[in-house]
Write a protein that binds this DNA or RNA. Structure first.
Lengths: 188, 188
DNA sequence: TTTTATTTTCAGAAAGTTCTGAAACCATTG
DNA sequence: CAATGGTTTCAGAACTTTCTGAAAATAAAA
């Protein structure tokens, strides 16, 4: 019998871990890092102790090349560190960062790559249409332009707020995140 | 000479709009809806008035099939509505939702699909390892297990906070978002 | 130095996603 | 009803991303 009303038919710890690894991998790929990379990080984080390339290959059922590349990428992102064991020529990898740091790292990168250009282009359009507000234009155009400007402004505001919010979060640590979540539940 | 120190070499409004559409499309695809779909929404939103399939095809340089599918998907997501014009047999599409609604819709969907499974699997693991806390186990294992549980707890906390935060945001409207962003800047 | 263990690299394979275009479909008009 | 204008569908094309596996590189051991 199930000890708790656990949502799935998970029997062993390893199975539960695998399910987590899979779910985290799924989420990682949704957030723009490759599934394998996210899975490798999840594995290293959940087992807690350093694993070598073969361990990762075996557990994740992936090729050597893929394991090598993914682990290297994780090291480059600063989410995993290399480690050596006495009397063992293999290289070991340890999850350096916690989940929040990983999330933060990814989100930061994303903001730079995706949100910034959107904001820049919005500011651009706003700059270009701004003079229309003061110039004397046919009456039938005036309303359309006002609408356009309003829409633009609301857009800029939204993206801007989101941007600032995300930046603020990614500055803090996990504790701050929880603190903020709590505070927000009272405000909003 | 440039009227403002606009970040790009944009000359006309149409160009600026195109740049925005492209940026928004980029971002959309990063958030899990197809680039074309995001571009179509951006186009409809920025022009403000309803466009027909051909307008969208022309402006976005896409095939009829693609336009039809993308627009239909937008309608299904509730982000765009169909509209008819008297004396015109063509069907028109109008951006119904503002940017915040679109973002919210996407984020909601994502949470359900990606964050929920992660949380579920975490709770699962926690449930399975919980009895180890009270059972009498070899001393050398105790520390490892405590570490494991700590790591797990911190993970659950982080994802949980994030989840709650996202849900809270997606409940409110754009005004609430801005309000929250402002409030948060004082707290965190 | 040669041998052996391990890691990295990268061309192409596999898988996944998005797009096209032509045919089928639907609705209105003559 | 047939013709016309418009929309949807979907098989396969094109493109993108990710993965493999074997060869090349590196490093330690003999």
């Amino acid at each position: 019998m199930s000890r708790t009303e656990s949502s799935n038919t998970t029997r062993t710890l390893a199975e539960a871990q695998d399910r987590f690894i899979a779910a985290w991998g799924q989420m990682g790929s949704a957030w723009g890092i490759s599934r394998t990379m996210a899975e490798a990080h999840a594995l290293l984080y959940i087992v807690g102790e350093p694993l070598n390339t073969d361990d990762v290959m075996d557990r994740l059922q992936i090729s050597r090349g893929n394991a090598s590349m993914s682990l290297r990428a994780l090291v480059e992102w600063g989410l995993v560190s290399r480690e050596h064991k006495r009397g063992d020529r293999k290289e070991y990898f340890r999850a350096e960062a916690d989940v929040w740091t990983m999330l933060r790292t990814i989100v930061r990168e994303r903001i730079k790559r995706e949100v910034d250009p959107v904001l820049a282009s919005l500011y651009d359009i706003r700059d270009m249409t701004a003079p229309a507000r003061v110039g004397d234009i046919p009456v039938e155009c005036a309303q359309a332009l006002t609408d356009h400007n309003d829409r633009l402004d609301s857009m800029v505001d939204t993206i801007d707020s989101l941007h600032k919010l995300a930046e603020r979060f990614t500055e803090g640590d996990g504790k701050k995140l929880r603190q903020a979540a709590k505070a927000l539940s009272k405000i909003v």
